[in-house]
């Protein structure tokens, strides 16, 4: 690499050029964006862009929160600590996991890197899954927004929270049953490079200085950035596709399909998946559908969306094996659908 000075300078120039481009755009953004060529772009394109950027900018702080927590776990929580706090019995761990999920105030964007990190640190897969589906719904912010959006219909709030708690345990239990003998469902590419790296590190291990606070902070930051770039691309792709649906999907179409209780529940679940809303805000969207849809389908929308959506699927595929993600998606979809039908058909 070192003897290749030419490419090195080329790469530096590439980076500097990019920086220059950004600065130029920053300074002349108004001139560019109000220029005739830009103004004459089709409205649909501008709308897609608006919604796309909106989702990305909105999700970034929460992704950052997620990667920072993940980096902190990486740095400061050891495998032993996790083992110590977990109940020895796999089934017994489910309920405390769901309760812990209720305490962690993370939305569905932030929870993915955290869960992945915890699993990597030795948390059993099924416990991680419980977090993954419980935390985005069972959290104070979501509780408050659902309360406000459905002030006049508290059934929605209680069904949403109750179902999230119970279903996260059920989903965790099914994952436990299915993947009991193959707990390692994280993507493997990492471990291969780990192996090669390990040999390399072993030799220099003795000379390693003891980590100072400064290097610890620095490593935490490095982890956070690396993970941001790891996740960010999936977030951005997911946000773009969601923005397309947001712009072009005619919602009155859904209303015509979703006339009976089964089809309306299915329609609202598909809808929740495609829109990829943040769990903090989805209650307000659901309440704007209040007229046309039954309580049952609204609850399905509110429970399913945070557990699984388009933007999320991209991130899951990045971290977990494809087979696992597909199994997870089928389980969550099936369980949410059936339980919503049961709850509103027989109990309420």
């Amino acid at each position: 690499m070192k003897n290749n000075k030419g490419t090195l300078i080329g790469k530096d120039l590439l980076g500097l050029g990019l920086l220059f481009l950004f600065l130029l755009l920053f300074l002349f953004s108004e001139q560019v964006s109000t220029s005739e060529q830009m103004e004459s772009l089709p409205n649909a394109m501008v709308n897609v862009n608006t919604i796309f950027l909106s989702i990305v900018i909105e999700a970034i702080p929460f992704i950052l929160l997620g990667v920072f927590i993940s980096a902190l776990i990486q740095m400061y929580v050891s495998e032993e600590t996790i083992q110590r706090f977990l109940p020895k019995n796999a089934v017994a761990a489910l309920v405390p996991a769901a309760m812990l999920g209720a305490i962690i105030p993370l939305c569905e964007c932030a929870i993915v890197p955290v869960v992945r990190r915890l699993i990597r640190k030795g948390m059993p897969l099924h416990v991680g899954v419980v977090f993954l589906v419980a935390a985005p719904i069972l959290n104070p912010v979501v509780f408050a927004s659902t309360f406000f959006a459905f002030r006049n219909n508290p059934t929605i709030l209680y069904s949403r929270m109750g179902l999230a708690f119970v279903l996260s345990i059920i989903i965790g239990a099914i994952i436990l049953k299915l993947f009991k003998n193959k707990p390692d469902q994280l993507r493997q590419t990492a471990n291969m490079s780990l192996a090669s790296h390990h040999v390399h590190v072993e030799g220099i291990q003795p000379q390693r200085k003891k980590a100072t606070i400064l290097t610890q902070v620095r490593d935490t930051l490095y982890h956070a950035v690396d993970e941001f770039f790891m996740m960010g691309k999936y977030l951005i792709l997911g946000a773009f596709i969601a923005a397309l649906f947001q712009t072009f999907l005619d919602r009155s179409l859904l209303e015509t399909i979703g006339s009976n209780e089964y089809s309306s529940t299915v329609v609202m679940m598909v809808f929740a998946y495609l829109l990829s809303l943040c769990s903090e805000a989805d209650a307000f969207v659901a309440s704007s559908f209040g007229n046309q849809f039954t309580d049952q389908s609204l609850v399905a929308f509110l429970v399913y969306g945070p557990m699984l959506d388009l933007k999320n699927t991209f991130m899951l595929f990045a971290f977990f094996k494809a087979r696992f993600v597909i199994a997870f998606m089928i389980i969550v979809t099936f369980i949410v659908f059936v339980s919503v039908l049961l709850l509103f058909g027989w109990i309420l």
Partner: peptide, 14 residues
């Protein structure tokens, strides 16, 4: 994937 949103954000009309 990362660069395009930034460019779109600056260049397209708000």
């Amino acid at each position: 994937i990362f660069i395009l949103p930034v460019i779109f954000g600056f260049a397209l009309p708000d």
